[in-house]
Each structure stands twice: as structure tokens, then as C-alpha cells.
Design a protein around this nucleic acid. Sequence first.
DNA 1: ATAACAATACCAAGTTTTAGGTATTTTTAT
DNA 2: ATAAAAATACCTAAAACTTGGTATTGTTAT
Lengths: 208, 208
Amino acid sequence: MKENYKVIIVDDHQLFADGMVRILADEDDFEVIGICNNSTELYHMLNNHKPDLIMLDIQMGGTNGLELCCDLKKTMPQIKVILISMFESINVVNEGKNSGANGYIPKTTDAALVKKSIREVMEGRDIFVKPINSETKVDLEGGSYAFLLSKREREIILYIKKGFTSKATAEELNISQFTVDTHRKNILKKLKLNSLKELISYAYENNL
Amino acid sequence: MKENYKVIIVDDHQLFADGMVRILADEDDFEVIGICNNSTELYHMLNNHKPDLIMLDIQMGGTNGLELCCDLKKTMPQIKVILISMFESINVVNEGKNSGANGYIPKTTDAALVKKSIREVMEGRDIFVKPINSETKVDLEGGSYAFLLSKREREIILYIKKGFTSKATAEELNISQFTVDTHRKNILKKLKLNSLKELISYAYENNL
DNA sequence: ATAACAATACCAAGTTTTAGGTATTTTTAT
DNA sequence: ATAAAAATACCTAAAACTTGGTATTGTTAT
């Protein structure tokens, strides 16, 4: 009873994807049918190919892997998705679960564990590999609060990261400066942070 | 005349390293003699093994690959070093050159280019692969200014990233708040930035 | 429908940052 | 030795952020 799982790898790091192909090529129950460097390529490929599994990098320039995962799961729920991330944060793992993925693997894990994880997922068991060194933000009581953020709040964060003042952001969005201030206040409260500076670091470490 | 280059791969992403081994295993003029996940492991391995080339990831949790490269080049200049990085910024490339490395490859390049780069470097020609999408900070007139930063200034940046106020930082370092303010001012000037918020984003995007 | 959430807007006091300086001591490199 | 760079310290005024509120209007999910 030889299974032959069709896999698509989505990662903007071509080199990583190339390596992954070779790791999976060791085994004869997997078959990599495609490599994509972004969501556009993936959607294009999905028109012609139906994979059993998508290995999806969360961090891709310009593309949010988590949103992509949500979207995939809405339209093609039968396709399994395993998220791959260079981040070790427990927050990212939780966000991964919320996005509907079937698994999460940090890039610090090794080839053997990847193969094992794929087989687990293909047999119907979701697997979320626990980060080893979750030194970042363990004080968040084991939970990510980022999922609490609204769309507008995420938008505000982008301006904060770019160094916009609340006044400048308000002008850009054509709303009152007071409104921007309120959004900022709510963001800090939701994420349990104390300043915009902490927020920016948090945003980079948690891929916001 | 079959060469056989001994290679050590240093990357805290085991999965990436595993993939790289398989990429290099395709060819018979390379031989991976070791994989290290951090600088400690590397130094330990160098006691017993003399590689011709070290493939060194710049971003490793807790370890600065650039500093490691400087150090390696001081004590063992005969060993070639190729830096690998997930960052596309031209700044990082320039810092790589300053650290004495023989080459730089972003993770967005593919397996073929890696092999080519290794052969180039082993034949004595340094190779720095130009970033494709250097969308970040292209306004810096083609140059990284990060190398201008002093040790103390880099230290101050770490506190800024953690959200410390200048007062808190001053207490931590047992210096005057005015001094911290001066350092901050000088950092912003050197990097041509306008606020601490921009600095934090810059720091994350440029691995400071 | 109705409760919860999202997005909007306002006020005020206190803290921090920003931008313009000047200036001394210590360290580093030629 | 000596010039350059690094690290230190101080001052001020304006701008921005922080924190504590309150409050109205949409939108969404049960």
C-alpha cells in the first residue's frame, strides 16, 4: 500500500525550497510537484495541479503566509497545509492554529522531523512542533494576543513601523489624530505592550 | 584533476542546513564534513577538522554571523567563508564585505547559483550576489551606514529595541541620561533616520 | 434584537522624544 | 605624539507619545 503524496512547496527562499525538495526526494512516498516563490505562483499552479499537501512558509516578502493559509483552507479545505517558519515564538504557533493549518514546523527542526510531520498530517493528525527556545515573549502567559487585532489596527501598525506619527497617519488615512491615538492605545492594550517601540519589535518578531 | 572541497555549514536552521547538505551532495567536488547550529559548535569542530570553506548564516539566534566571520578571518584566513542571509538589503552585502567574507548569497537564490558561487570562491574569486529586490532602503544612496556605528551605539540600539526609555537605559548602563540621548542622536544621524521608531524597523530589517 | 466589537472622535496631564546646540575626557589608529 | 573617533555630560523648546478617561455610530454574530 504505497502512498504517493503530491506536495507543493511555497517559499520565497529558493535555496531553502531547493533543499526541501531534496530532503523529500529521499523518500518514495512523497513527490514534490511544484515550487512557488509567492502566492501568485501558487494560485497559478493550483489551477492545473491538485496537491495533497502544501508546505507554506509564513514569512514571504510582501505575502502573509497566515492569510494565504486561511484563504486556501476556505476554498480548498481538503488540501493539507503545513506552515514553516523561521520564528520560534509560541505566538506564531498559535496564530498558525487559528489560520486553519494542519501543522507547524520551525526551520530549526531537522529533516527527519519534517518527514515524520508530513506523514502524521497526511494520516489525519495535526502536528504543531513546539518551539525549543521560546525565549521571546514567554511572559505572554502562553498565548498570542495578535489574533485580537482588528483590520484597522493592523493597518495602523504598518504606519507605526514606518515611523509615522499619529498626526501623519491621521492625514494619510483621512481620519482624526484622536482616532489614531485611540487605535494605538487599543493595540498596546490588546498585546499587553507598553510603548510603540515595544510594539515595533513585537511586530517584527511576530510577523505583523 | 578532481578537487574535493571540505565544507562546513553553519546555520541555526537545521532544516535549511539539511537541505544544503543534499544540494551539495549532488556534486562530487564538494564534501560536507560538518553541520553546526551555532558558533560554539563551529569552534569545537574546527579543533578537529580543517575545512576549505565555511557556509555561514548571518542570522543566528544569539550569534552575530558577521562578527563570527571577522573572528574566523583573523585566526584562520586561509579558510574561505561564504555568508548566507535571508536579507536582501544591499547594506547587508556591504557589511559582509567589511567582515572579510569571500562571498555573500541571499537565501532567495537557487541551488545552481550556490554551487557556482562555491566554485568561484574556491578558485580565488570573491562573489557577492546582488540582491534582486532591494526595495528596502534603496534611498540610502547605495551604501550601508551601519558600519559607522560604534560598539556603544549598537548596544544602545538593543535597549531601544526592547522599548527602554533613555532614562531607563541610562540607569541600566550607569551613565547619564544625557549621554544616552547623545548616543541616540548620533545613531539617527549616522543612519539618516528620523525617529527611534524608524530605527527599530531599520534594526530588524538590517539585522542590527 | 441585541450584545459585542470596530471604528470613530475628543480632552488633559504627565512623560518622552526630537533637534538645535556645546564641551570634556578617553580610546584608537597613524 | 597627535589627530580622529568614541564616550561622556549638559541645556532648552517644541513635538510626540502615554494614560486615564468618555462617547457616538456602524457592523457582526448569536
